[in-house]
Structures are given as structure tokens and as C-alpha cells.
């Protein structure tokens, strides 16, 4: 094995560990639990990016996700994708109610956090903070790992 290929294998191996088998992350917050937040890498800053997660309400009262914000984005909103007769459209979802015992999934093709006016590119392997504001529970900040542009699920 020559030096170049040895260096390459070490780089690949290091990449494997750093990109590595991430743990399923969750943040417990009062009655709410925010699980496996993740985002797709962006291409530059001109195009909006999307972030996803699952929110569980283990309490006995309905709570609502009323706002999202992040230092990486000048404007963040919860958006919903609808498909009708093969045509997809996207629009702000408004406050997102989560009933007692309910789980709401923000996932590709459905609900997502739309991060507009990006202040910096979202680079694969990096992380950024995202603050969620709930009507009852208040604010919680989760740390969001960035996966590839083509990711369709949080990488395990």
C-alpha cells in the first residue's frame, strides 16, 4: 500500500467515525419529547432548507407548536405539503396542535420546518440549534444534525 492510498484509507476511516453511527437523539421537555431532529444539507444559501423531527406529547393536555426559529435562518416556518391530482403544493401549516398522547411527525413529503433566508449554508456533518415555541410548554432548543442533500430519513 503506497502512502497516498494509506492516507486515503485513514481519511475514509476517520470520515466513517465522524459521520458515524449517530445515536437516536431526543430532548425531553416537560410533557413533550422532541425526537430525532435532522435537516438536509443546503446548496449555498439562496435556496431554502428543510428540517424534520417527531414530537410526542406525553401529557394530558393539547399543546401547540406555534413558532420555530434558528440563527441559521432569517425566516423559519412550519410548512405542509399537499398532493392533489398529482400536483404538489406547499403552504404554511399554522399552529400545529399535538393532542395528549399524540405524536406528530415532521417528515419528507408531509410537514417540515422550512428554513428560509439562510444566513449560512447547512453543511453535511455540521449541526445547528433550532428553537421550537409551544403554546403551553414554552421554548425548547434542539440541536439538529445535518445529513446529505438526498437524505430521506434521519441516518442511524
Amino acid at each position: 500500500m503506497n502512502t497516498a492510498s494509506k492516507a486515503l484509507s485513514i481519511a475514509l476511516l476517520a470520515g466513517f467515525f465522524f459521520a458515524g453511527p449517530g445515536k437516536a437523539e431526543s430532548t425531553q421537555f416537560g410533557d413533550l419529547k422532541v425526537e430525532t431532529p435532522w435537516a438536509r444539507a443546503s446548496i449555498g444559501t439562496a435556496r431554502p432548507a428543510a428540517a424534520y423531527m417527531t414530537i410526542r406529547n406525553g401529557g394530558s393536555a393539547t399543546d401547540q407548536l406555534v413558532g420555530v426559529e434558528s440563527p441559521v435562518s432569517g425566516m423559519a416556518e412550519i410548512h405542509k405539503v399537499k398532493t392533489k391530482d398529482g400536483v404538489v403544493s406547499m403552504s404554511p401549516a399554522g399552529p400545529l396542535p399535538i393532542g395528549p398522547g399524540e405524536t406528530v411527525a415532521l417528515a419528507p413529503g408531509g410537514l417540515h420546518v422550512m428554513l428560509m433566508k439562510l444566513r449560512q449554508p447547512l453543511e453535511k456533518g455540521a449541526r445547528f440549534p433550532l428553537t421550537l415555541t409551544f403554546e403551553r410548554a414554552g421554548k425548547v432548543t434542539v440541536d439538529v444534525p445535518i445529513h446529505g442533500v438526498g437524505a430521506i430519513a434521519p441516518e442511524k
Partner: peptide
């Protein structure tokens, strides 16, 4: 369109 953050990357990913 490429300014589409959700549906288009999902479709391109599915096709890949």
C-alpha cells in the same frame, strides 16, 4: 424546481 426544499429532493432521492 431546485428551490423546493422538501418534495424535489425527496423525488430525486427516490429516483436515485
Amino acid at each position: 424546481f431546485t428551490y423546493c426544499p422538501d418534495v424535489c429532493p425527496t423525488t430525486l432521492s427516490d429516483i436515485t
